[in-house]
Design a protein around this nucleic acid. Structure first.
Lengths: 149, 149
DNA sequence: CAGGCTGGGTTTCCTGAGGGAACCCCAAGG
DNA sequence: CCTTGGGGTTCCCTCAGGAAACCCAGCCTG
């Protein structure tokens, strides 16, 4: 985990990292996303230490990214994505896209994504929400915003 | 940082985290992106320990995300994004988008992005690279790919 | 041409987070 | 009752992060 507290920085990247920047957090989120929603399942899938998994889950719940809820009359719980968390999955998809492109190697990507709307195996692409044309790092200017320091 | 080695996992998210998952790495990348390309600049801007900054920069260079190059006949160096690194900035933009939306608070986002193609202050949106319609976490099915374990 | 200055690190030491394994609690079920 | 299994806690050890001091190679200045 980061020792330094990122949440105080006037930077939305740092603030996002404050929520999912700790080691394992994105992978925990991915597991919940693909349907591994219980402590034992996630622990077994990732091989993460139980202590750390407890910490991560609590942190994600505190930040409103996951919701912890009982699924039995016994004390059994599962973790589900909130809408805030579901939007974080977009980030995971972009991460996966980069990994697919640059680190998949000979074997090719371990998973494929099928877009339900068109039925095609496709990749995610970044577009401008105004004009709809591609919007990548080199296509933009960065300006100070209202919350600038 | 993570003790566990993510690079061996058959997961493109984990493989991406192996490159930029360590604390500070995304912020180092952001700094280089916005033009803080020298050791002293980055160190001063982030307040990161010099030791850790050295490690992160070396790691990013080893992975071909940054390139280290001299800018003087004295032993002075600057770090610049490779194309592999520039594509990672897309990830930073999505991160910033989430932080803007969920954690900016009253003050509003600290920075704005102007899309050069249309001139508008806009946000990045995820689209299907086939059909061009929105492609978010809930719009896709995940299937095993050729590199599946 | 000795001494400073500057950028870019390296070293040292201390603390605390991650890993691993053992332990614990509670509610069924047999 | 005793076991089983999910969901955690506790303990201990090691190693990564933070802070600050130190180092070195070239200009630059007196």
């Amino acid at each position: 985990m980061q020792r330094t507290d990122f949440s105080a920085m006037a930077c939305s990247i740092a603030r996002t990292l404050d929520v999912i920047g700790e080691p394992w957090s994105p992978l925990v989120l991915r597991d919940v996303w693909v349907g591994l929603t219980r402590f034992e399942q996630i622990q077994a899938d990732l091989g993460i230490s139980r202590k750390v998994l407890t910490e991560r889950l609590n942190h994600l719940v505190e930040h409103g990214v996951l919701e912890r809820r009982p699924y039995d009359r016994r004390p059994r719980y599962e973790y589900v994505l909130t809408s805030k968390g579901t939007e974080l999955v977009d980030l995971l998809m972009v991460m996966a896209g980069w990994g697919d492109r640059w680190r998949a190697g000979e074997a090719g990507p371990p998973v494929l994504y099928r877009h339900r709307a068109c039925g095609e195996i496709s990749r995610v692409d970044l577009r401008c929400d105004h004009c709809g044309s591609p919007m990548h790092a080199t296509d933009i200017d960065v300006l100070p915003g209202p919350g600038a320091p």
